[in-house]
Amino acid sequence: MSKATINRRQFLETSTRGVAGGVVASLVPTLVLADDNWPSQLAAIESSNAAMLVRMCRVLYPHDGLSDGHYADCVVSLDAKAAADSALAKQLNDGASALNAASGGKFLELDEAAQVAALVTIENTAFFQSVRGHMVVALYTDRKVWAELGYEGPSFPYGGYLERGFDDIDWLPES
């Protein structure tokens, strides 16, 4: 009897709209953009597609307060998945190239509204869903992103919020 259990990644990825992913944030401890050569270190995603994917990630989940490094981190973890899955690698490389080609090779130069419009046209493709499904988990499990969004994460190590502001709201009308 096989003991194989299905992990979250497998069943959520079968979803067309649901979340997908399974990224341990600690795998990407530093902002990769610190090193300008990061695209050449990708294992499966062609370096020429790296900037495309970073931009696509930002257009999907735009947070003006986040630097490109946070999005590049997600592309690095997506690359790690693609390195173990050649079909995914092909889908990502083909998809990124096609998205760029559809904009006459100038996707990166379009303004945000035009980039959104380009993504809307491919919203139902497997490529789009792979990137979005990965991103929505990878970006929002990144503890550096939590801090940017104002989420404090684990509280047990600090004794919970009982003495740290669980009831500190001060702007409500008196009832």
């Binding site: 067309t16 709209r17 649901g18 979340v19 257009v59 999907l60 929505v136 970006l139 929002y140």
Partner: peptide, 10 residues
Amino acid sequence: AAFLLPGGWG
């Protein structure tokens, strides 16, 4: 992120 608006982006 996963449950607020499943599939949502932008």
